[in-house]
Design a protein around this nucleic acid. Structure first.
Lengths: 112, 112
DNA sequence: ATCAACCTTTGATGGCTGTCGTACGATGAA
DNA sequence: TTCATCGTACGACAGCCATCAAAGGTTGAT
């Protein structure tokens, strides 16, 4: 009935409102760092359910929310599936080199 | 009486034991980030008492300890004064680009 | 209409940590 | 030896946060 599709995600933060504190808080959690790393190593957007982690569904929802509200990922629905992507450009502009350094370190972390 | 001076600080972590988790945990706290930024902007080692922060003495001791045990700073006594320096080389080797990115972001954080 | 898949919300819980005051220890100077 | 300076250790406390289970909501397919 609606001409425009319902937007079910409403709390993406504006690029200029991304804070260092928020980004560091988000990436200090190992589960969230794992999400970001997997996203960085993927060629396409990933559904929430396709990530590899060790926590319950409800906990993973929480982590995605923290990442989204920190401005690290963008999310949108495609049917019942929620797709995630990294906000690389926004993060690089806000904090040059930070995301790459953490992702690279996280990659090594996983192969140690 | 002792030929070698007493070493009063014993828990510096080895360079190869610096972890991403520890570094991020340490630098997520704004007070600790302030310490690191001031240290990065100083030309010489700084005594604990010469930093600019808003917490009590005992709390600051706690923060220096966290930074030291994360491998981010090195400390040594000179008389009654405890001097701090950044472990830049060790950190750069462990996590290239990370420290610089955070310091640079922290500098902007302070002038906003 | 029903159902399955996907994700969210809520409430509870346990653990961690930043904070402080107070008391203490070590060093060097008077 | 006395004293001031500098930093530490301890105990307490409050708040935050990662976690889970259970129940719920939305969407698309049957």
């Amino acid at each position: 009935m609606t001409a425009q599709p319902t937007e079910r995600i409403t709390d993406h933060v504006a690029a200029e409102d991304i804070t260092l504190q928020g980004v560091l808080e988000a990436l200090t959690d190992p589960v969230r760092r794992g999400i970001v790393r997997q996203l960085a190593d993927s060629e396409r957007d990933m559904a929430c359910g396709t990530f590899d982690f060790t926590v319950s569904r409800s906990t993973s929802t929480h982590h995605f929310k923290v990442l989204r509200r920190a401005g690290i990922i963008r999310q949108h629905y495609e049917g019942t599936v929620k797709l995630n992507s990294l906000r690389r450009a926004d993060l690089d502009r806000a904090f040059p080199g930070l995301l790459d350094a953490i992702i690279e370190a996280a990659r090594r972390e996983v192969n140690r």
